[in-house]
Design a protein around this nucleic acid. Structure first.
Lengths: 184, 184
DNA sequence: CTCGTTCCATACGGGTGCGTATGGATACGG
DNA sequence: CCGTATCCATACGCACCCGTATGGAACGAG
């Protein structure tokens, strides 16, 4: 087993970085190679072609997304309200800007590609299910629970696509106020 | 004044259609020409280059967006609650699928292009201002008004980027329930 | 019927990106 | 130190797209 100079994973990581920065069309093999300091020669040793890379990128993204948030929230225990608040904090601050940008890029991508949409549905269903279980713990009506889940998800995602200012208030402040409404 | 076979506007319309379908990178002059049943020969008579088309596309989009919704809502009168509900209906049903898809495409585009972001900010500020005025009419706290505005905007936009199912309920049903929470 | 305006077709040069082919280079295992 | 596995560089053909150049074609005005 010889030393692995730039392994599959580095191509995938660089691909996700490109996706985050410029969308699916910005995932160009020759550009990735340059970013990795090599030529595309090695790429076609690891992967059949560009679509194969995209597949594997989405595979890793899906794998990470399915568990990332839930595990982090569940890890520290507490009752439903506490965990929900931790979920909100996590989604708002999201120290890893990179993951968020990939997330948004994938969501836009999914609107144009059925295969991507299918993956996104799997991830979102899983997250929604989890959030539903948290809300259900202290909210009686099922319809109300579902409405709150959609609002929360839409806030997490949609707020990044809304450019409006809030007259003096910062986005973070308004976001906090909006999320507080969901706990009541 | 000779007959105008395929005028500027048709290039702009076709460009917006391409934008809606495949994002900014899908706006290719030769593809537009083929869609219009001509060659790109005429394009460069109307426009200097591709960026010039993009500018004019965004100009028209901005112009339409700034007034479209507000005029339609204001047109039929009623009190603030009524108009707000009409705004919700309009944004939910949005019979013109095309406008919605352009809207979403522009929002994603704005994350990568400062000039586009600037335009989006103008449009969103205008809309937010209008919605704020409606909510303020029957909601006392300013912070609460602002939170509701952000929730509404995020729902209108973000729900299209969320792929989760709602266990038996349709998206429209949950959406209605979510919006009803905002009036209370 | 002629003339100018408006638009179109075609051909070209240049740039970029994909995928392939081929000959290394590097590092470890024996 | 020899061989094999792993990775890289280079060069090529192909396709696509931009922007330009140039010679029209269609149409209305006069």
């Amino acid at each position: 087993m010889a030393l692995t100079r730039t392994p599959r994973t580095s191509w995938i990581d660089e691909g996700l970085r490109a996706l985050a920065a410029g969308g699916p069309d910005a995932i160009r093999i020759e550009a990735l190679a340059q970013a990795l300091g090599v030529t595309k020669g090695g790429f076609y040793w690891h992967f059949d072609d560009r679509p194969a890379l995209l597949e594997e990128m989405l595979d890793t993204w899906e794998q990470v997304m399915i568990d990332e948030v839930i595990e982090r929230v569940e890890g520290e225990g507490g009752d439903a309200r506490t965990r929900l608040r931790r979920l909100f904090d996590l989604a708002s601050t999201r120290e890893s800007r990179e993951l968020l940008r990939v997330d948004l890029a994938v969501r836009d991508w999914a609107r144009r590609d059925r295969a991507v949409a299918k993956r996104l549905r799997r991830v979102d269903n899983r997250r929604m299910e989890y959030m539903r279980s948290l809300f259900s713990d202290f909210i009686p009506g099922e319809d109300d629970v579902e409405a709150r889940c959609l609002i929360a998800m839409s806030l997490f995602v949609g707020s990044h696509f809304v450019a409006a200012r809030h007259g003096g208030r910062s986005r973070a402040e308004v976001m906090t106020a909006a999320l507080k409404r969901l706990e009541a």
